[in-house]
Structure formats: C-alpha cells, structure tokens
Design a protein around this nucleic acid. Structure first.
Lengths: 208, 208, 208, 208
DNA sequence: TATGAATGAGTATTCATTCAT
DNA sequence: AATGAATGAATACTCATTCAT
C-alpha cells in the first residue's frame, strides 16, 4: 500500500496510504480522521466522502491486506512440487508478508479484535469470505500432500484442524513479532520445523 | 476476576469486574469510564480515584490476567513427572484459562496490539517482566525435558526458540478462538500433537 | 406542485416537487440538498445551479404556495353574489387548499416562523407583497359586503381588523390541523359559523 | 423565564434563559449549543449534561411555556362570574402571555411544526397531555356558560369544536403578531368580538 | 444545462478527568 | 474513601456550495 508507483496518486490511494501508516503507529481509535486527511493532503470531508465512515476505511484496508496476502501466498504456493512444499511456501509467504508489510498485518490483527460496528455489511461479509478462502488454500495444500504422499496419512477431518493449527502458529507469530518485538527469523524456523515434524512422511517429496 | 469470594464485593473489585466485562465486549476505547462506573454501581469519580486513569485500569487488569495465567500454569506444571509432560500441562493450562477466562485473554490480546500510552511506567515494566517469566517457565520445562530425556536433543539456543514457537501457537489459537470464533477443542488437540511431534524423544517419559 | 401535467417533468419541477415533499416531512433545516437532489433524480450541483441556494428554493416554494392559494381564492370568490358570500368562499378556498396541498401550507407556516436569512431580497419583497394582496382581497370582499348590505355596518377601520381576524382564524386552523392533527371539517364549520355571526346582516344576501 | 429573581441563578436556569433568547431570535436549528453555553456562562458540555440533547432542551422549554400559559390562564379564568366571562378571560390571558413572553410563544409555535426526533418520549407525552388540558379548560368554561346560560345553547359536540375554533384564532393571532408583525391590540379586540358574537346569549351574565 | 468530486467550516455530542463537598 | 456536577478539549461526521469538466 505504501507509496503508489505512479507520480499521480489518486486521493483514495493517498487516504489509504496515510491511514495505513497512522493506524499502525497509533492504533485505529487514537487516529483522528483529520490526521489521516492532512497526511493524505486532502480535506477532512474527502475521507468520509470516499469511505463513508472511519470504520469502513479500516475494513477496506483489512480487506486489501488479506487480499494481497492471499494473492502473494497463492502465487508462491503455485510453484510447489509437492503438498508438503506447498505448506512450506505458504508459511514462508506469510513471513515474507510480515517482513514487507508489517503495518498491514498489525492493523489486521487490531481490526480482528473488535467486531464491526458501523461497517458496510457487504464489506464485512467479503472480509469473512476472504478469510475463509485463505484458510482453505492451506487445507487444500495439505490434502494435496496427502494425495502425493509427501504428507503422512491423517484421519478424516484432521487436515482441517492441521490447517487451523498452522494458521494459529502464523498469526500468533505475527502477534509476537509485532506486539512483543520478538525476532522474526527464529519464529520462521520454528514454524517450518514444527510443520515438517507434524506433517512430513518419511520419504519427503515423492521422487526426490 | 468474576465474582469475588467474600459476601461483599469491594468497590475496587466491582470496578475490575465491570471493566473486565465491558472491555471484552466492546473494547477498551469504546468503553466509557461512566459505563464501567454504572455497571460497578459506583460514581464516575470513584473509578479514577482508585485507578488514577482509565488506561492504568487496563494495565492493572492485564497484569492480573497474566499473573493468574502464570500461577495457574505453574501449579499445573508442577505436577509433571517429566519435562515433556510439563509442556503438555503448560499447553493445557493455557487452554484451560482460555475456557475459564476468555474475557481476560481477549483484553490481554487487545491491549498488546497498542503500545502503552499513559500508563504508570512501573506497572508497565512489571507487566513485561511477568511476560518474560511466563515464557521462561516454558523454556525451563523444555530444558528439564532435555535433561530427563523425555524430549529429544536440541541444539543450543533452540529451546528458547521452541518455547517462543509454542507461545505463538497458544496466543495465535486464543486469537482464532476469541476473534474468529474457531472451536477450542480441535486447536488444543492440534497444539498438543504439534508439541509432541516437535519435541518427544522416542521413549517418552523415562521409565514409563 | 405535485406531478407536472406534461409527460416529462423538467428538472426544476422535479426539484420543487422533491423539496416540497421533504421540507414538509422533515422540515427545512433537517432536509439536505443531497436528499432533494437524489429524490428529484438530479445531481447535487443541479439544485444549487437552478436555485442559487437552498434557502432561495424555500422562498420560491413559499411564493408559489401563496400565489396558488391567492389565485384559487380569487377565482372562487369571483363567483360570489354578495360580499358575505365572498367571505364564505374565501374561507372555503383556504380549507380547500389545506386539503389539497397540506405540504405547501405546512412549509409556508414553518418558513414564516423564521426570518429570511440569505434569501434574495427581491424574492422576499415579492413574498411580502403577495401576502398583503391576499389579505387585501379579504378586506375588499368585506367592504363589498358593507356596500351591498350583506354584512352589518362596521365602523371605519374595523373592516381591516376583521380581515386580519379571519386570517388568524384560517392560519391558526391550518396550524392545528397540520401540527396538532386536529380534524379539518369541524374547524371549517366553526370558521364559517364564526364569520357569519361576526359579519352577517339580518337579511343575508340582498334579494335572496 | 427571563432573568431569575434571585442573585444566584442555577446553571440549569441560566441555560434555559439563554436558550429561550437565542431560539426566539435565530430559531432552533440556527442556534448552536455552544452559543447557548457561552450566553449562559457555562461550558459546552454542561448543556448536554443537564438536558441530554439540544432537542430535549427545546421540549423542556416548550413544556415550561405551555405550563406557565396554562397556569396563568387558569388563575385568571378562576375569577370569572359566568362562563362567557370565562371565555373572555381565557382569551385575554392568552394575549397577556403573548405580550409578556413573546419569545416563549414563538418557540412553542416553531417547535410544534417539527415532530420530536431525539426527544425524551416521556417529555413528549407530557407535552401532549398538557396541550390537551389547556384545550379542555376552554371547553369546560364553555360548558359552564351553557349551564349558567351566559352562552346561547349549542348542540351536543359543538362546545368541543367551539373551543378548537377559539384556539385556532388565538394561535393564529400569535402567529400573525410574531411572524408577520401584525399589531396585537386589534387582534385582541377582534378575538373578543368574534367570541362574544359566536357565543353570547341575549342576556349576558345571568343577573347582570 | 448539468454534473459530482471535493471542500472545509460548522456542530452536537462524548468522555476522561477534576474538585469541592 | 467516595461522590457527581461540571468541564472543555477532542472528534466524527454533515452539508451547502464550488468548480472543472
């Protein structure tokens, strides 16, 4: 979201950019609409004109965040040669995003802790749907690993839980990095180690 | 925090109780001091009189939360017959607390996402120290497991990372349960399975 | 104002129509220009483009209201066979308008309670002049009644006051109907009864 | 309402006093809460603290207005020696109030034209009840006049309508005085003349 | 003639905090 | 210890109006 490539940044983009910075630095509630406006170089009313409410702006940003995380992950996972490597790349994509866009993830974590009050219901349901798709991508990868035997057999229903468990690990790690200032690298290594030991079949990727 | 043992609840306890409920339901920023006061059955000024500021109240609550989680965990872990079982009990204690005091954990998660603004510095450093102790307890248990060989050998420095990894898993799971309304049970099972596969030596508890 | 005769309603008429509805329902100050615009199916700027300001729109509407009341009254009064009957018809015309165009009268009443702020002075003086003519029409009819002896003799200057008294009765009745939801019919009967007892000579219309 | 007798005016009274002046001068919507506050010599928040909302303040004032009009009228009417004189005094009391408290009546007229939006429902129903009592007082006086034969016989149901008719006359006169700057005296004379001709029996007050 | 994105001054209301009692 | 009336700075949102197209 930071710094649009072109020289002409639309007002909407400028607002998203400014809000992104300020929400991450001071938190949603501690950021005044007027601060966003002045950082974005627009009038107060313009923020509300485009996003209808401050809270909607937050949800739009959360959606963009999750969407770009989802896209990035999907692209990276696409290059996997087996299911287990897919899980590996899913995890690495998350930590890559955590490195590149820490603000976005922090805002996403904040946002999740409060239920949407004045947000556009459509936006809200889109967000939930996207969250579900992001989780399902992982479940799918795990299933592929079961099929190609890079992942050791799991009982029915367990793949879903494994995916949820890995997501817990990821968002928990993001939380510890962003809120408790833990280092990212060791947590990435642990996440990978944990995932491999939880999932890997004896013979890793078939044919390797 | 809910329901004091004695027959008459002191005003301080009543305020903590009310704040606990409201912060969890609506979030810190969306809860007015006057709401806390009226739910606690005291006057507006009384809240500030006892806690000096609204924010301090939040940190006092966070400290209590972490403290009771720490105590509970220590007591349960004390009954472990080996290091690996200690890890098992540490995880179960966390999920037990998550079941019994979801509000407290939710507030703790919320609180962490925003840096302390006007809080008493002493309180803040106490909180950080307690957090460290809570993490070190887990590290310690892992080291015990290495010593008693219930946990497979780990290179130097790794036990620290393992502990952080497990904490990520725990707080991430709490986040998914409290914010995304995931079910607690499957996440507990996954956390335990993950921990065992990450740590367990071939022969589990020695002599068992 | 409602529904223009032609098949396509011009934008100006559409705006007047929408404003008429909204001002009557929510009051002038509580009606946003953007609401008028969207109900009229035009852009925001179009309303200002045609009427120069929101307040001008109100005065234009008030003028139309008073003008159509005046025209309707004049036409009906023209059919009177004596002065007293003229008064009768004047009163009936008012209540007829109250029945057909309650919104218009309500807006007129509202508008009158607040002094013109930024309105075009020309428009404002036209409005005052029209108000005067509407009152003078009644005075004139009373004078005719004195001349044709359908109305009992009145001292000099009193015809003016009688006319003002009757107008008080009419606008007060409109106020009670529109604001206090009193029924129109009984008030019409009372208005007529009152006027007759106040004015009628023994022998009503001469020659009848 | 204007100027409390004692030297110490409570904040609530000061606010009512200030609001009374400003609402009459500029209208409800054109008066900012901050203007009321500064004229009353209190902080902005104090206005809302006591009246909960700007609109509630308006309704409180309307109630006070109607209440003092009601009390004044009841006291004056009490001195009537017959029903017809009661009507006379009722009318004179209204015009007396119009002379003494024009602001209050103007605000009351304004207020009536807009339905209560954010007002305390209790306050609103009290207002309606008081309005009804004020009208019933007039109906009652008319009935007394029928009983003591100072008023000529009326068919059943008509006394109610007569009372409504007279109220129309009164509020319409207030409207013309306050909004159209008509003179009060001639309208009072006309109101009395009209009432007498509408109601008086041949032999006025019995025994006179 | 018509538009609608953009404005920015204006405002009711909120709320943590103070302090006299 | 406890109160609650009073505060006043802070703020999200409104909306009439402008102007480039």
């Amino acid at each position: 979201m930071n710094s649009q490539s072109g020289e002409t940044m639309g007002k909407v983009e400028a607002i998203l950019d400014a809000a992104s910075t300020l929400f991450a630095k001071k938190g949603f509630d501690q950021t005044a609409v007027s601060e966003i406006a002045s950082l974005a170089g627009v009038a107060n009313g313009t923020v509300i004109y485009h996003f209808k409410s401050k809270e909607n702006l937050l949800y739009v940003m959360s959606w963009f965040t999750l969407n770009s995380l989802h896209r990035r992950t999907r692209m990276e996972v696409a290059g996997a040669s087996c299911g287990l490597e897919g899980v590996d790349l899913y995890i690495r994509a998350f930590f890559g995003y955590l490195e590149d866009q820490p603000n976005q993830l922090l805002i996403y974590l904040q946002n999740s802790t409060t239920g949407g009050r004045h947000a556009d219901p459509l936006l809200l349901s889109n967000l939930v749907a996207l969250r579900t798709r992001y989780l399902e991508m992982l479940t799918e990868v795990v299933r592929e690993g079961l099929a190609d035997e890079s992942i050791a057999p799991l009982e029915a229903g367990v793949p879903d839980d494994v995916a949820r468990g890995i997501q817990s690990l990821l968002f928990g790690a993001a939380w510890m990095v962003l809120c408790h200032h833990e280092k990212r690298e060791p947590l990435l290594r642990e996440a990978l180690a944990t995932a491999y030991m939880r999932l890997a079949a004896e013979a890793r990727c078939p044919g390797s």
